[in-house]
């Protein structure tokens, strides 16, 4: 299927906690998830069901124990679970955008630069990337007077919006969004939902974690329900 952007086959992931006597936590077992271009899939389920672990596995941060993670990159399906580190870096730069729950701030780097960096890395001209960064920050209600400042002193909500701008600015074909509407007021939540539908309209495949039922109904084409393995029958 040519419009298949992301597919996992039998994805399995657990954690071995060596500091707790080698305690073994099974989190994901045999996950088969498929997302097409222009589709938004929401991972749902209680905390501890492995939603964030799945999202981090799709980004290559958590290393899969078994199965495949196929990502459409440069026109072919690449197995991220078997890719070497430099291939993963290339996939992240060009293909996979990720918005974590918290912005990891870099000292002394202005908000505009933090956002523009992602687009420049993906090949946009610096001036155009900065203009796009400013426009997106303004849409997310970060006023122009803050664009030159490093976000270290921003509020949690403002930092999260800088993070979202960074995630959306580059136009990645696949977006992974970890609770993009958490900690946002109603107006900003509406903006994020609009950004998601704009990304879908340009053909992006999106995997997201959404707890807010209204946001889920508005943004997601379907839910991918998950349950904690310990609770499973």
């Amino acid at each position: 299927m040519p419009d298949m952007m992301l597919r996992t086959e039998g994805l399995t992931k657990g954690f071995t906690l060596h500091l707790q006597g080698g305690l073994r936590l099974a989190v994901l077992a045999g996950i088969d998830l498929a997302v097409r271009a222009g589709e938004c899939v929401a991972l749902t389920g209680p905390s501890g069901a492995g939603k964030t672990t799945l999202l981090r596995s799709l980004y290559g941060t958590c290393r899969a124990d078994g199965g495949r993670i196929l990502i459409r990159h440069r026109g072919t399906l690449l197995d991220l679970a078997a890719a070497d580190p430099r291939a993963i870096v290339a996939v992240r730069t060009e293909t996979l955008g990720y918005v974590s729950q918290f912005l990891r701030v870099v000292p002394r780097v202005a908000a505009r630069e933090i956002v523009a960096e992602a687009a420049i890395a993906r090949g946009q001209a610096p001036a155009a990337a900065r203009a796009a960064a400013e426009a997106l920050l303004l849409r997310l209600a970060i006023p122009a007077r803050l664009h030159d400042l490093p976000p270290a002193t921003f509020s949690g909500g403002e930092q999260q919006r800088v993070n979202l701008a960074r995630g959306f600015v580059a136009g990645h074909p696949i977006l992974l969004l970890d609770e993009p509407t958490a900690a946002l007021d109603a107006a900003n939540r509406a903006t994020v939902l609009t950004l998601i539908s704009e990304a879908k309209a340009r053909g992006a495949a999106i995997v997201t974690i959404l707890h807010d039922a209204a946001a889920l109904a508005a943004a997601a084409d379907r839910a991918f329900p998950m349950t904690a393995l310990q609770d499973a029958a």
Partner: peptide, 21 residues
């Protein structure tokens, strides 16, 4: 050995887990 986020967020070796924690 691994990507920075892999090693810091999903450390595998007991010693790496100790360092990170």
């Amino acid at each position: 050995t691994g990507l920075t986020d892999q090693v810091l967020e999903d450390p595998q070796h007991p010693y790496t887990q100790l360092l990170v924690s």
